[in-house]
Design a binder for these strands. Sequence first.
DNA 1: TTGAGGCTTTCAACA
DNA 2: AAAGCCTCAA
Length: 748
Amino acid sequence: MDLLENLNKNQKEAVLQTEGPLLILAGAGSGKTRVITHRIAHLIHDKGVRPYNIFAVTFTNKAAEEMKSRVMSIVGSGGNSVFIKTFHSAAVYILRRYGGEIGISPNFTIYDTKDQEALIKRILISMKLDPKKIKPNSIASKISEIKDSREFIEGTDLSLLVPEYFTFDFMDVFEQYEEELVNNNALDFNDLLIKTVHLLRKSPTALEQMQFSWKYFMIDEYQDTNYSQYLIAKYLASATKNLCVVGDDDQSIYSWRGADIRNILNFEKDYENARVITLEENYRSTKEILDAAYSVIQNNSSRKSKSIIAFRGEGEPVTWCQANNEYGEGDYVANTIISLKNRENLSNGDFAVFYRTNAQSRVFEEVMRREGIPYRIIGGLKFYDRKEIKDILAYLKFLVNPNDMISLFRIINTPPRGIGKATQDKMTDISKEMNVTEWKVIEDDLLTGRVPKGLDNFKNIINGLLSEMAKIPVETSLSKFVMEIVDRSGYRNSLVEEKSVESNSRLDNIDEFINSIYEYEQMNPGASPEQFIQDISLYTSEQNPEEEDRENCVTLMTIHNAKGLEFPVVFLTGMEENTFPHKLCVDFEDALEEERRLCYVGITRAMDRIYLTSTELRRSFAGIDYKQPSRFIAEIPQNLIDIKYYESTHQVGGGRAGYGSSSVKEPPAMKRASAPMGGGSGGSSGFSKGGSGGDSKFSLKERVVHPKYGVGRVVKIEGTGDNIKLTISFGVTKKVFMEKYSPLEKLN
DNA sequence: TTGAGGCTTTCAACA
DNA sequence: AAAGCCTCAA
């Protein structure tokens, strides 16, 4: 196989330039992933590099999975031993192995945002601060922001980073938070990276060992690296200098997570003799899609100007559909998917629906389910975020790391064992007084006064499970062990006794969870419970861990999650002011420019077709919001856009009953938008030949005349043969007719 | 100490 | 709309 086949000149160079520092500036769709994967394959096949000598990291699980599977499709199963992970999971891997060098034991717990907030809340209370006035989540994000900063990592003055409006002693809270993490043997997401930097600085031995195995480094999405990620790459590659970074400043969308654009801008300064290769030919998208994307991104002031060549030439116009509300938007998306599938050889896997915030996914899910379109959701409602799963995981986390008091307090009275707040508070006091962990207080019966019977019971459960856990993997297995947890803790029983719809579904979820552990076990033979929970803490699962084949599913995800992916047909939804751009961004130029880059990322995911959708009104928890089309729409030249209007009869604000009972909905109407930007190209409707009513003598949008109702317009055609149903819109009212019996005539 | 029921808050994006 | 928090009766 010739790996260089079908690569252009610059791509070839990038693949062949295996030694030394290399910056690949890769515009959207310029074959970046292709270059990375072929570069890996080239290293293995032509340069004789061992797969496990290659270290490649990206940002999201999604992108890492994608990269891995594409590498494997070129080099076969050998690709499996290439180290391809997200930055965070790479850090976990490193810390689990070498963390001992800086005093981190391998059974450390990862605190996610929720755990973090729970811990901060405890600290606030212990400091007599009111968690209602001082919000744990705002503290958490400030702490996170500081921990991402150069100042924190270099140990310089942090005082400038603390906002003036914090009227309490923030630094004190911060210090206690850091202390408690140590006491709990826990690391937050920032720590994973920071401690790795720390390790690489402090332990030449560990660094040497890592450099013994890794010789070639690839960092994807380099524009999104923060300071610690920048350092990790730098230190790891310091011996061989074989560091290849890939990025595009137009696609920088993680500044809110501490991404530092200087990393990519200064690459040539940081690395002597760095080579820079620019990929500017776009192979993914049609010219219309690229023109639209570029006309948007050009409104940003702070960007390197660059050229892009639309290799594929022209295709379909960009479609912008304005719907009356979010249900109309959902219907429009579903109907367009159905009609495109009828018209062309497309499968569900070719479609993706993007939105700015996860909350927008609900309506799309509902519509997909109603229309019988299989879908999968990436990110968002995490399976592992469900209460019952978190509870069971907390047991596991605590058993693995008995210092983890956040997990301990989650499970100590779940299910209820009569260990209430009073007892728990006493435990905390004693543990502070005697400077021992809360578990030690239980284990050694250090509680004085009245001790609830349940506490002894809890102790026995935990001790029993601890000795059971020691039998993994020989006498028992991880999945069996988790089953033991569910049973012995009484968790299963309490759900079984509850006998409600909800408790049944929780039981199902637990079974599904155990199933997924079983699969994990098969994939990772000999994996320890420690490893499992650390892996799982970083993995934002799809709704069902074992999802149907992706070919068969429409993909729903946030735009952030879409980065690095591509789809033949993309719906970029919620194109409204204050939705996208998000309302928290519209007043800040920097934030707005990042939104615009996000928009650029969204549009450039599309290969053949892009549909931008917006609503006239949308319901939020606050009430009904009337929406203006996103400014990004107006930034696209009119001549590129085909404008549509779509109306659903679902009335927003009609109360609960109006929702969900969508099977009885009236057929939606479709009409030309009275667009603020004037007419589109008058191109074909998304539904023109679509639907199963292909053999009707009428076509969609055609004007017809009815003896009683007058002139109307065909807005929907359903059924076949003698069963063709036509929906005709007569101004404000709509009527459904059987074509065979109706007196409808063409108007001409 | 528990759990039902009422009240309040919450949805920005990812690891 | 849903989850989390709080109060209060048992």
